[in-house]
Design a protein around this nucleic acid. Structure first.
Lengths: 197, 197
DNA sequence: CCTACCGATCGGTAGG
DNA sequence: CCTACCGATCGGTAGG
C-alpha cells in the first residue's frame, strides 16, 4: 500500500511537507503533534497516513532535501575556476539566500535534525561532516595561495562561517526587519573582510 | 508547601537543574521526560516534585539565569572606560567563554527558550531585545567615533556577532576538537577584523 | 478521507 | 523519597 501512494497524488504530500516544515520550525519537531499538522492541512490526523508513513518520514525528507541541495551546490563551486576566497564568498551568498528564501526547511535541517532516528541520524551527521571537510579544503587552499590570513584556525573558521549564517533563522522571525540584500552584503563585508589577508 | 521547599535543601535542586540543563541540551526540552530526568538524578519521577513545582520551572530557571548573567556583564562593560570596539571585543570574549564553560545552560537558553510559556516567554523576548539594543548602541557609537566601518548595518551586525557565538554550541559537542583559547582568538580575529575600519 | 479507537507515555498528584 | 495511579495526549491502525 505504501507502494501505491508514491504513484498517487504527490502534490498532496508536498502540501503536508510544507506545513510540517513550518510547524517544526515554529514549535519544534517533538512539540508538533500530527493533530496540529492535520489541522493546518485541513484534514483529520488519520488521513495524513494516506500520504505519509510516519511523522519521522517528514523530518527525514526535510533534512535530506537540504543536505542534497547544499552538496550539489558545493560540487558546482568546487568545479568552477574561482579563487578560493571567491569560492567561499559564493558559498556564503548561496547559503544566505537559501536561509532567506527557503527558511522553514533550512531551519528544521539546522536545528531539529537531532530528532532523526538511526540510521538517518548517522547518515545526516556524516553528510554534514563531509560538507565541512570540503569547506576546510577550500579555506586551506586560500591560505596556501596567500589570499586568506594564515593566522586562522581552519576548522574553527568553518564553524564560525556556517553558524553565523544559521543565525539568520532567528533574524527572520524577529521584529528586526532588515532587507535581505542588505543583510547579505553586510555578512559578506564582515566575514570576507575578516578572512582576507 | 512550595514555601517550605525553598528553605529546605537547595543543593538538591541544583543537582536537578544541572541534570535538566544537560538533558534539555541533549534531547531538547519537549523530548526530555521527567522519568528520564529522574533516572539521571537517581530518584523516582514523583520524587522530583519534592524539589520543584513543574518541568517548566526548570526551563524558566535555566533561561533567566543566563539572561541575568549577560545583562549584568553588559552593564559592567557599559560603565567601563574602553573604546566602543574594545567593548565589543570584551563582550564577545565573555560570551565565547560562557559558551565554553557553561555550555548546557547557554545552549538551553539559546535554543530551547521558545518552549517557555507566557508570561515568561514574553519576558524572555523582551530581555533579549533589550540586550541587543545595548549592543546596537555600542556599535553605533563605534561608527560615529570612526573605529568601525560605516558601511555596516548595525542590527544585522549585532545579529551576526551573537549568532556566530551561539554556533559554539554545536562545535562543543562535535568531534572537531579545537582548544577553547584558539577558538576564542580565531573568532576575535575574524569578527573584530571584519568590523574594524 | 473519515469515525472510532488502540497501547504507550506524558506531567503531575495522593498518601504514606 | 517511594508506590500507585490519574487524566490527557501522543503516534498510529482498522475498517469503511
Amino acid at each position: 500500500m505504501a507502494r501505491i501512494k508514491t504513484t498517487k497524488d504527490e502534490s498532496r504530500k508536498d502540501v503536508i511537507l510544507t506545513a510540517a516544515a513550518e510547524s517544526f520550525r515554529e514549535r519544534g519537531y517533538k512539540a508538533t503533534s500530527m493533530r496540529d499538522l492535520a489541522e493546518k492541512v485541513g484534514i483529520e490526523a488519520a488521513s495524513l497516513y494516506n500520504h505519509i508513513d510516519s511523522k519521522s518520514e517528514l523530518l527525514i525528507d526535510i533534512c535530506f532535501s537540504i543536505t542534497s541541495l547544499m552538496n550539489d551546490f558545493m560540487t558546482s563551486v568546487e568545479e568552477s575556476d574561482q579563487t578560493s576566497l571567491q569560492k567561499v564568498e559564493t558559498i556564503l551568498r548561496f547559503q544566505i539566500r537559501q536561509m532567506v528564501d527557503n527558511f522553514d526547511n533550512n531551519f528544521v535541517a539546522n536545528r531539529e535534525w537531532n530528532h532523526l532516528d538511526e540510521p538517518e541520524l548517522s547518515e545526516f551527521r556524516t553528510q554534514r561532516h563531509e560538507y565541512r571537510k570540503r569547506m576546510n579544503h577550500i579555506i586551506t587552499k586560500g591560505i596556501a595561495d596567500g589570499e586568506i590570513k594564515e593566522s586562522i584556525n581552519v576548522p574553527a573558521t568553518v564553524w564560525l562561517l556556517l553558524h553565523a549564517i544559521y543565525g539568520i533563522e532567528s533574524w527572520h522571525r524577529s521584529k528586526v526587519r532588515v532587507d535581505p540584500a542588505v543583510l547579505e552584503e553586510n555578512m559578506i563585508t564582515i566575514l570576507i573582510g575578516g578572512l582576507k589577508k
